[in-house]
Write a protein that binds this DNA or RNA. Structure first.
Lengths: 333, 333
DNA sequence: CTGAAAGCGCTTACAG
DNA sequence: CTGAAAGCGCTTACAG
């Protein structure tokens, strides 16, 4: 069934049917009614391939969310959308599988839909290196920096991950901890891991401590099980640790479990700091001290960048504030 | 840039270019090489609208995941895919926003892609009532039952939510609890809530207790904050409760926090049972006793149903086993 | 092995 | 306000 069937059955031409479907002007009330009626009766759905193939007009700003399950992104979308809407722009969001090549998806989408702009929530900055030429629309990477990519149309807005990690670890040092372990990510695990690790290293060094990666660091994926296993290994190897910095809340949550399983308490025996301020750190027992990214600002600034880009502005790379939120998982020693 | 540019630049016709792109036979090695070279050089990406508009062949089985962040679904996809792959079928998964109309998305997808089959992980069964006529492909709803929809091509595979909830609450009763509160979902909140609530009600009644919805039940969304608030209200209203059954692990996790905030301990003062067996219940302190759905079987059976459906079998509605996993959140009183 | 041509189902000037 | 026609960028018989 296609638009011609609707045309035939309603007694109008396909052009009129098309205009009726799309709510365009130049269709009599009578025709519109009749056409909608026939469509409903036949259960007709337009073919999106044909439609987008033909339409040269731009589609709404496309938002690609990669870290499915990353609560932070949900909190970014609201403000992002709000800011865009007040300038009359809509968004359509697409969820991508973890680890997928966002840049490829974006290139394909660009050709298929011609979005006015693109927003990437998560995703590995590296993939933009190879597959991003085709997209001409203004785009912004949120949460990772695209600065060194130096692409003309790819902006980024992010917190200073290095400084945030530095603050997190400094917080521990200032509370008297000197034997501090680090878990999560990996040493060559992409931008975010590297930056947070470097921040931790810096903070330690500023307090006269050299981070011994062999002994006091344990890499892992950003999942609960990862944090659990990694922290377990770390604790078994270095039982004199009085504090642990986890590169993400999921990791911290798993680590908390590993600590408790060894008969230790947080913060009684081991202090713990996470990163991200997800519901995991907000509701766990004890609540976990962590780094909060300002989701509202992340969203609003990303929207601004897109809007400016649509107006011809070139790519920018912004830093947005973060904040150490102190909860119940750190004690002074 | 389109396929004609590649044809022109490579010195071949568009037909040959198309065949080369799609890895079809009847292209000389020489031509293939040259064409691929030109494509790479120009960074050409085919237009998917045009491609799918033209292609009448069927596309791989489409998997729609709705409860983004529902870990269970991740665990279902693996076995689902494995089972399909051994019959030579691939899958392509699409993540949908929470609360979106999966049936509409499916109808649109059907027209655009002609998938060989469709699998729905999550999603409200009700929406299939209105927007599912267009899809002729065999489809299966996983996690909710589509039995009463009685659609000829929509199967379902699910656990018996009512029985599972009954077991969960019976477990509490058998441990001596008689003042049991229930949190999560809502009384008219769709199939899953209703079933689990009914199961709880039944178990209580079997032990001579009538569930007082006014006093001992508190509805909430399936998010941590919901469980936290709802359990808080419940506890304040009925401080004599010795156990709480949460309709989902996220709710249980929030409830755990609310309980602790009142100076009570789990399971010392209040016992707690969740539902879903997510990482939340696995890693929380204490670990939460919960209902585990057999994700492996859910996936494998769903695959079988699709495969059978492709072979002409009509819709079936299967129940898959679940299991109460006892952990650290329930004590005998 | 290759190319020219038809056509997938729409939208959009254009003419009436 | 309406219809006939061109064309979006591909794929696929068909003929060579």
């Amino acid at each position: 069934m296609d638009i011609r069937d609707i045309a035939a059955k309603s007694g109008y031409g396909v052009g009129t049917v098309s205009r009726a479907i799309n709510g365009q002007p130049n269709v009599s009330e009578r025709a519109r009614e009749r056409i909608l009626e026939v469509m409903a009766e036949l259960g007709y759905e337009p073919n999106v391939n044909a439609r987008y193939l033909k339409m040269r007009t731009q589609t709404p700003v496309a938002v690609f969310v990669t870290g499915v399950g990353n609560r932070l992104f949900d909190d970014v979308i609201g403000p992002l959308q709000a800011e865009l809407v007040r300038e009359g722009e809509d968004i359509v969001v697409t969820y991508l599988e973890d680890g997928s090549n966002v840049a490829r998806a974006a290139a394909e989408y660009q050709l298929a839909r011609h979005p006015k702009g693109m927003v990437f929530l998560g995703g590995d900055p590296e993939c933009f290196r190879t597959s991003f030429q085709e997209v001409g629309a203004p785009a912004v990477l949120v949460t990772s920096s695209a600065e060194e990519l130096a692409l003309p149309n790819l902006s980024s807005v992010t917190i200073d991950n290095e400084a945030a990690a530095r603050d997190a670890v400094a917080h521990l040092c200032e509370r008297g901890h000197r034997r501090i372990g680090v878990v999560g990510g990996s040493r060559d695990g992409g931008q975010i891991s590297s930056l947070r690790l470097r921040g931790a290293e810096d903070a330690l060094r500023a307090h006269g401590i050299e981070l011994d990666y062999e002994r006091d660091y344990e890499p892992c994926d950003f999942i609960e099980a990862g944090g659990f296993e990694a922290a377990g290994r770390l604790l078994d190897r270095a039982p004199d640790l009085t504090a642990v910095f986890a590169l993400g809340d999921v990791v911290a949550f798993g680590a908390l479990r590993a600590i408790c399983d060894r008969g230790l308490t947080v913060p009684g025996d081991v202090s713990l700091v996470g990163f991200d301020d997800t519901s995991l750190s907000q509701y766990s027992v004890p609540r976990i001290t962590t780094i909060r990214q300002n989701a509202e600002l992340l969203g609003r600034r990303a929207a601004r960048v897109i809007l400016d880009g649509m107006g011809g502005a070139s790519a920018t790379h912004e830093l947005v504030p973060y904040e150490l939120v102190e909860r119940e998982s750190v004690r002074t020693v």
